[in-house]
Amino acid sequence: MKRKSLKRLAFGLGAALTLTATAADDAGVPYPQVTDMIYQVVSADRSVYTRLVVERLTIDEEAITASEHFEDDVALPLPAQMFRFGAELVADETEDFSYSLLSLHPINKKNGPGTDLEQQGLQHALDNEEKFYGEEELGGQRYFTAVYPDFAVSEACVDCHNDHKDSPRTDIELGDVMGGVVIRIPMD
């Protein structure tokens, strides 16, 4: 049930972004610029959720907790989960673009690099702390793929990742690159 209302919210986001991508295409906006714009939106939304909802309610007000099993624990979804739910709903609504939050050290293995270019891009983001653009072919379709470094911006992120039993990396510090936001646009 909670998922339903989430779906409505994320649908709005997805629709807005679809519009952005389509408009960009018509105007002939270069791929890097489009992915930069998408990144701005998704990353801003997550920051707002992290600061105004999760950190405020869990740390400042101590009104509720945030949990991976938010339904069972009657808690808030973690910011990374909120980000992923949005990405899944966008994938459900459109094939014009897709995005995901990945890492070379993921807690859940399915969020590790899945393609050669993802591996390369995440490594580049980790090493140079800067974004990476590339092209790759997946399932017979050519994609423009951008990888944006994702920094550890709050204690909550760092603590959870360092403590989780499935985390391959336990020495993360604030400001470190923890992973990357990968955005893909099919090229035609």
Binding site: A87, E88, L89, A91, D92, E95, S98, S100, K110, G114, T115, E118, L138, G139, Q141, Y143, V182, R184, P186
Partner: peptide
């Protein structure tokens, strides 16, 4: 939804 992502190709 998860498998529709091209990264799962």
């Amino acid at each position: 939804k998860r498998f529709r992502s091209p990264r799962m190709a």
